[in-house]
Structures are given as structure tokens and as C-alpha cells.
Amino acid sequence: MNKLENRNGNPVYKTIIYIVCIFLTVLSLFPFIVMVINSTRNTPQIQQHAVSLIPSNHLAQNWAVFNGKTFDPIRGFFNSLIISSGSTVCTIYFSTLTAYALVAYNWKLRNPFFTFILCVMMIPAQITSIGFYQFMYKIHMTNNFLALILPAIAAPQCVFFMRQFMLASLPLELLDSARIDGSREFNTFNRISLPIMKPAMATQGIFSFVFSWNQLFLPSILLTNNKLYTLPLMVSQLKGDIYKVEYGAVYLGLTLSVLPLFVIYFALSKYIIAGVALGGVKG
């Protein structure tokens, strides 16, 4: 009897755990369910009852509210896509290259350089934004996506992660045999190291993309032309007075702004959870 209980655990205790977990599941999903359903309802319906589990048929009507307004989700989507893709490619490629320099070669300043990366890893870009803004203003790079893409070349946290992964999975003998075969160093990196690094690059790529996509502070100071607004900047327009009476449209705008992330998340959640477990993102 005692043994059986030991194997299956305490049923009362387990029931409590399941109840708490189900409650937390509802807590995670409920705000988004309300958001999606209300984006199909019109203002009078929402005013009468703000919570409903039955979708209505006013989606097109809510969409029409955005006509001719500054909130342009399609433009915002493509602006965000350009910036996030550009900075992700920069971060992933150059971080792997830097990690390769740290792992594959023995150079005098290698350890000081790595120590430096550890030191600056925690400095948030936001804290130096005043200097960054003034600098970009001076060289006429405000309202230019490159100001948000090029800094991504230097991503200390990503280099740190790539280095740890490379130390564990890149056999240095493989590089030696490539050298014997006459492969040039840069070629060896591209043809041999990059394929081995693919899993780490995919994980870091997802986080880098999402981080860039969600950014608000830097885009909000650098992009003043509303044709260049990213999706989070577009969303901040929803707080404006024109939407005070258009509840359905606000919910629809919010839904559209998070839709791409939901698609990414539910397609890749397995890799994302595994990546978080590796400590690949900052808190």
C-alpha cells in the first residue's frame, strides 16, 4: 500500500497541482481570447458586455476604421520585418564569426577580448540612447533603418552563447583536415563551421528576431516619419483620441500586432522553450 502510494504520488496533492496549472493556463490565454473575440465585435456590443466568448461579424467594419489613419498594420508589419530580419542576420552571422575567432584561433588578445565581452554583456542599449540618438542625428541616420540594423553586428550576449555552443560541438581536428585539403580560413568557416552551428543559430535567430520585433524605445526615438513606423510604434498610435470610441478597432489593431508572434511561437515553441532552458535569452 505504502509502495503503491510512493509510485503514483498523493492524488489530493496532484489534483491541487493540476487545478493551479489549469488556472494559470486560463490566466495566460484569457486576455488574448478577449482581445481576438472583441476584434470581431462593434463598439455598442463591447459597451454592453465587454467579455463575450462568441465572435461577432464586425471584423471588416473594424478594419475599415484604419482607413486613412496613421495606424497602418500592413506597412508596420513590413517595416518591422525589414528591421528584424536585417538585424537578425547581422547578429547571427557576425556573432558566429566572432565566436569562431574565439574558439578556432589562438591569439594574444583572445582572453582579454572574451573578458571584455563578459563585461559589456549586461549593458542595455537603452541606457546610452541619448548619445546614440545625437550621434545618429549628426550623421543624418535618423529615419533610416540601418541605424537599427547595423548595431546588431555587435551582440555580446549572442557571441557568448555561440562560443559556449561551439566549444562543445566544433571538433578542431575538422578544421585542421580542411586546412590540409587547402581550404582557406574564411571558406572553412562558411562551409564547415556554419552547418555545425545551425541548431545554435536557429535558436539565437528566433530570440534575436523576437527581441528586435518587440523593441519600442530605440525605434521610437529614431523613427519620426510615420511611414517608417514599426508595428510596436504603430500600436502606440492606438492610444490616440481617434480610437477612444472605436473599441473594436483597438482590439483588432492589437490582435494584428501580435498575430505574427503567435504564428512564430506556436510553430517553433519546442525550440523556443529548449532555447530558454539553455539560458539563451536575457531576463
Partner: peptide, 12 residues
Amino acid sequence: VFYMPNIITAAS
């Protein structure tokens, strides 16, 4: 499910 809100745009 528990991790999901973390990935959604904080502004939204």
C-alpha cells in the same frame, strides 16, 4: 502556455 506572454510585444 506559461511562457507564451513573454514573447508577445510588451507595448501591445
